[in-house]
């Protein structure tokens, strides 16, 4: 039984993909699914550009993890955003075979 949605976000603020990922995340939460979002590359910049969206995800019970390497490169303070600093191991975990995954990359 699938109980978790994994989202991968690697695109920047201009694409609108964070808003799409958020729409999916909140729809999944309404169905009682756990949601985990992993951001890397330009996706980390998208999170930094939309702190209210990040807060809404966290308030809705979603896990939000970002690649620390990408954040360091972009000079983004993940802790200030309330986002967990992670690694590629978290990327692999989000795509676990028990989950369903949508990647905005």
């Amino acid at each position: 039984m699938v109980s978790r949605l994994g989202l991968v976000l690697a695109t920047g603020p201009a694409t609108g993909d964070l808003a799409r990922a958020c729409a999916l995340a909140h729809a999944a939460r309404r169905r009682g699914l756990a949601v985990e979002l992993f951001a890397m590359h330009d996706g980390v910049r998208a999170l930094a550009a939309a702190p209210a969206a990040v807060l809404a995800l966290l308030d809705d019970g979603c896990e939000v993890i970002a690649c620390a390497t990408s954040a360091d490169r972009a000079g983004i303070d993940l802790a200030r955003l309330g986002v967990t600093a992670g690694s590629q191991d978290d990327h692999a975990a989000v795509t676990d075979g028990r989950h369903r995954v949508v990647a905005f990359t």
């Binding site: 590359h41 590629q88 191991d89 990327h91």
Partner: peptide, 18 residues
Amino acid sequence: ATVAEALRAAVGLTLRGA
């Protein structure tokens, strides 16, 4: 740079046996 990130992501995806 995006190609490099995609390949880094691909390596990452292997970490749990995919």
